[in-house]
């Protein structure tokens, strides 16, 4: 069995080493990864799961030992850096709720670029929300052809939960086109907003 020894290495090095080793591995072969910090371990696990690899983690003293079965394939241009989540102390306790597919009242085309710019800015905020909720025509931001899909995936990789109104997906008949976030219901959505320190409506 091949081993990647990423002890003492900080993100994104363990991710890069893992990606490289998996590329050299045959389908269904197993790889062992050794990591000595929890952040890197979480990031690597997240990365592997995104690309449908089976992972088993165990802790031996201060070392995390990951066993990975190459059950999927990682494209050569996979953005490892996006999985490099360096402890996010800035993940705050607030929630952003997107109520429609544009921002503010006024010209529709203006509202549409405002909401795109807004969502594309969230991954770069110092103070990031805990969750982002999409309601009514806001759900169009989470579909396959959404212009902000990459930013939403970045948010998910940062551990920010994305909730999408299931009733709304159903109403607009777009359930099969959901590409980011998880389908949620009014109970979950109201609970998330009630629990948050504050809710920002976009």
């Amino acid at each position: 069995m091949k081993t990647v020894d990423a002890k003492g290495k900080l993100c994104p090095v363990p991710l890069i080493m893992t990606k490289k080793a998996l590329a050299e591995l045959g389908q269904d072969e197993t790889l062992e990864i050794l990591i000595d910090n929890e952040t890197s371990m979480t990031n690597v696990c997240h990365f592997l799961k995104e690309y449908k690899m089976q992972v088993v983690t165990e802790k031996q003293g201060n070392i995390f030992r990951l066993l990975v079965k190459k059950s999927g394939n990682i494209p050569e241009n996979a953005p490892v850096e996006d999985f490099c989540r360096i402890n996010t102390p800035n993940l705050s306790d607030y929630v952003i709720t997107v109520k429609r597919n544009r921002m503010g009242d006024g010209a529709e085309e203006l509202g549409q670029i405002l909401i795109k710019a807004c969502i594309n800015t969230i991954p770069d905020l110092d103070l990031k929300p805990k969750k982002v909720i999409f309601l009514n025509s806001g759900i169009f931001m989470c579909l396959k052809d959404s212009p902000v899909l990459e930013s939403l995936k970045k948010l998910e990789n940062l551990g920010i939960e994305i909730l999408v109104c299931g009733t709304c997906l159903d109403y607009y008949n777009k359930k099969d086109q959901l590409a980011a976030g998880r389908i949620s219901n009014m109970y979950d959505i109201l609970n998330s907003m009630a629990e948050a320190s504050k809710v920002v409506f976009a």
């Binding site: 670029i113 795109k116 710019a117 594309n120 800015t121 212009p147 902000v148 990459e150 930013s151």
Partner: peptide, 11 residues
């Protein structure tokens, strides 16, 4: 978009 470019609108 018509020309097939991939991009983001950002502030």
């Amino acid at each position: 978009i018509e020309a097939g470019f991939k991009f983001d609108i950002i502030p």
